[in-house]
Design a protein around this nucleic acid. Structure first.
Lengths: 333, 333
DNA sequence: GCGAGGGATGAATACGTATACAATGAATAC
DNA sequence: GTATTCATTGTATACGTATTCATCCCTCGC
């Protein structure tokens, strides 16, 4: 096991200085065509690849983006991650992935300052955590993706959760529902908050009251949706429709209904949020508000690259529309 | 935006040399207790974090592991990735994630030699690709996880797919099925091959013939399982049980059956492989061969770390049992 | 009182690359 | 023929840290 060749080794082989090899590697125009050809031939023969660490050390660019995420097993997050990977790959960038569930906040703080990456994508900002603040303060370019934070001076790209939720609410009301269940999240993020408030606003605008007993606050897992459905649907007079703020909870609700023998959409309508690919499966056939994952990621990474280029540019907050996709769980199709 | 402080800056502040600061950072015992305390105080005040690149350059260790994966949105892969992230985090290691679907093989080859990581975890080795060969030849410690390659001189940790498939087959036969469908994968990996062969072996041992028309070869997506179910179940005399090599295909099959109005388990039994968390959802309630994800990841990363320690140690191939988990899709519970 | 030994620290260097600067030679202009 | 420019290349250095080596001072034993 011998250590890999360096540009200095290659320079000796090609009969030039290390500087010239480096110039060839960086496509510096100030190299004679013949010399370049000769060096390239030697590089090729030796199957040489520059040491990325040394290069990063010198240039200050690692060509690596850090991604902070939670619950990779959640269908929406997996799709988001997949899309991020696709876009970064196409740009020749690497991705370091941190799951902030697994790491104590303090160790994440260390990561932020290690200069391992050129920029950060935060996909799980909440008010419970100060991760976004720490990231911004670290001085490393940062973009909030999918989850935003009000008033934070930081580029952000999010879906228009409020509007999507509003549309879902209006759709239910216009379809004649008046006894409507709302399964919402206990945790503190813009995303779930807007998905809650937008929905309530739609009902309020239509003059439909939402009974306190029809509102259930839960955690994120499938099982919590299941439990919420049990609670709402086992009552004497259950709601005729249930809206919830994530697809994962909606799947849990559908499963809870299934367990009780409650039929969807005959007995109850169900609407989710995210429009994950699972929503289109027959097992769920779920009406859901669609998140424009591709556009969010594309735009977010574009913003991040521009901020890396120019740290002084004014921050942007981009909001993308979230259209409702109607399927069988509300009698569609 | 000022550049972050270096150990040299801190040394000046603390009135010591940069070498002493470095010694404090690396817990070198040859530092006077008072000096150490003083330096630590200064480090604390400045909220200093060492530059990981410079450190890696000097030590040759990046404390980062490269993970190669495909189809992150597939439930099993997402769970595998989540578990890898959990274990690496607990060890203080970072993860660079590459999705080999997105990258041409040549660019992956470059990645292998960039010395960005201390080791690689390959989770998607197939005979179609030479990624595993390139990884081993790169000289960087490498472990194959979940998917193995026969005869490759490389540490490997895999589930006992053959035995798991065999048990599934025997279970169906012992339950009285004789007209059995097999939905298998077209692609070339050890994993799906063993999940196919083990199942056939069980049937053969029991004297049950498998009709050629009952075997369908498909791709990996949900939709392919769906199509396979349509093909098998719309016949005049459909099989009474279908076994397939991944949960994702099984979900597709269940959905295909649902679309046809075929009842599970009344009209047909279905068995998958992986025992993803979705398998336990009411929507599927799927009998499935369980992959010991936690043990695979734990063992694999352990092997990788030991190989990083000692590149000369003999390679190990570890095979872990895959027990059958019976649920409603085969009348269980 | 002096040499030996050891503990603590600083100075110097190396990791592998990119790049500012210097140097060389050829070509051009007068 | 000399001065000037330009193209090309080499030399030297820096990125920030870890570590070897040298140095210093203090203590101890005689």
């Amino acid at each position: 096991m011998t250590r890999p060749p360096t540009s200095r080794d290659l320079a000796r082989l090609a009969g030039v200085s290390q500087a010239t090899v480096s110039r060839v590697l960086t496509n510096n125009p100030k190299v004679n065509a013949e010399t370049r050809a000769r060096v390239l031939r030697v590089l090729e023969e030796a199957n040489y690849t520059p040491n990325a660490l040394a290069r990063a050390m010198k240039t200050g660019r690692t060509d690596t983006i850090g991604v902070f995420m939670t619950r990779v097993t959640s269908p929406f997050h997996a799709e988001l991650l997949d899309e991020i990977g696709r876009v970064l790959s196409a740009l020749g960038l690497h991705m370091i992935l941190w799951n902030i569930e697994h790491d104590p906040e303090e160790s994440v703080g260390k990561v932020l300052q290690q200069r391992l990456v050129d920029g950060f994508l935060l996909t799980s900002a909440t008010y419970d955590s100060s991760l976004h603040t720490m990231a911004v303060e670290s001085g490393t370019p940062t973009v909030l993706l999918h989850r935003g934070i009000d008033g934070l001076d930081c580029d952000q790209v999010v879906g228009d959760n409020w509007q999507g939720a509003y549309d879902a609410g209006r759709y239910l009301v216009e379809s004649g529902h008046t006894d409507i269940g709302l399964v919402t999240l206990t945790h503190t993020g813009n995303t779930s908050r807007d998905r809650d408030l937008g929905f309530r606003a739609a009902l309020a605008d239509a003059g439909v009251k939402i009974k306190p007993s029809n509102v259930v606050s839960v955690g994120v897992p499938h099982a919590d949706g299941h439990a919420a459905a049990q609670k709402l649907l086992s009552r004497k007079k259950p709601p005729t429709a249930i809206y919830t703020v994530t697809d994962l909870l909606a799947f849990g609700i559908l499963d809870g209904a299934r367990a009780l023998g409650v039929r969807v959409p005959d007995d109850v309508w169900v609407i989710g949020f995210d429009n994950t690919s699972l929503a289109a499966w027959e097992a769920f056939d779920l009406t859901s508000v669609s998140q424009p994952i591709h556009a969010i990621v594309e735009k977010g990474i574009d913003l991040l690259r521009r901020r890396i280029e120019d740290p002084e540019r004014p921050t942007e907050i981009i909001t993308l529309p979230c259209p409702l996709v109607v399927r069988g769980s509300t009698g569609g199709r």
